[in-house]
Amino acid sequence: MQIDAVRGDITEQQVDAIVNAANSSLLGGGGVDGAIHRRGGPEILAECRALRASRYGKGLPTGQAVATTAGRLPARWVIHTVGPVYSSGTDRSPLLRDCYRNCLRVADELGAVTVAFPLISAGVYGWPADDAIRQALNTLRDTETAVERATLVLFDEPKRLLAEQLLAAR
């Protein structure tokens, strides 16, 4: 799989699937989640509500992933995943890696060959960006998948540069 890192807006990525760093309610929120729901339109929220009414009555568990339509986004699907909240006292890295692995699994089930990922858990959930980038890139590299291209979409240039350095180092 080709992996690249870009600075940009995940809601503008021309890919088969966009990953949403969702909260467990699946009903929208701030950051990436809010941007995807606002730009994608009410179709995404309608499918999320249907998921809550059926399979995920208590919300989507941390590390798991589920897909909906992408509504008005330039993608076919949104793959929602709930990242772990960072804790300096508890290693939640396996849950963060599960987010990426499960998103790739869902992408494979959908037949998506291009997927754009945000930096999961590195916003309001407090994960240190440098470690979040390492976790993301290592997991994407090490996961068997039919996805042909994964793009890590980063909000600022310093994070993109770090991701580029880590990609070049391996």
Rank of each mutant, 00 (worst) to 15 (best):
Thr69Ser: 14
Ala70Pro: 01
Gly71Tyr: 03
Arg72Thr: 09
Leu73Tyr: 02
Ala75Val: 12
Ala75Phe: 11
Val78Arg: 01
Val78Ala: 03
Ile79Ala: 02
Ile79Gly: 00
His80Glu: 05
His80Ile: 07
Thr81Ile: 14
Val82Ile: 02
Gly83Trp: 01
Val85Tyr: 06
Tyr86Ser: 11
Tyr86Phe: 15
Tyr86Thr: 07
Gly89Phe: 10
Asp91Ser: 12
Asp91Asn: 15
Asp91Tyr: 10
Arg92His: 11
Pro94Met: 12
Pro94Asn: 15
Leu95Thr: 06
Arg97Gln: 15
Asp98Phe: 01
Asn102Val: 06
Asn102Arg: 13
Cys103Ile: 10
Ala107Cys: 14
Ala107Trp: 00
Asp108Ser: 08
Leu110Ser: 12
Ala112Gln: 08
Ala112Ser: 12
Ala112Phe: 11
Leu119Gln: 08
Ile120Gly: 05
Ser121Asn: 08
Ser121Glu: 07
Ala122Ile: 10
Ala122His: 08
Gly123Cys: 10
Gly123Tyr: 06
Gly123Leu: 10
Val124Met: 11
Gly126Ala: 13
Gly126Thr: 05
Gly126Asp: 06
Gly126Cys: 11
Trp127His: 04
Pro128Gly: 01
Asp130Glu: 14
Asp130Asn: 09
Asp130Ile: 08
Asp131Ala: 13
Asp131Gln: 15
Asp131Phe: 08
Ala132Gly: 02
Ala132Leu: 04
Arg134Asp: 14
Gln135Glu: 14
Ala136Pro: 07
Asn138Arg: 15
Thr139Ile: 02
Thr139Glu: 00
Leu140Trp: 01
Leu140Gly: 02
Leu140Asn: 01
Leu140Lys: 00
Glu144Phe: 08
Thr145His: 05
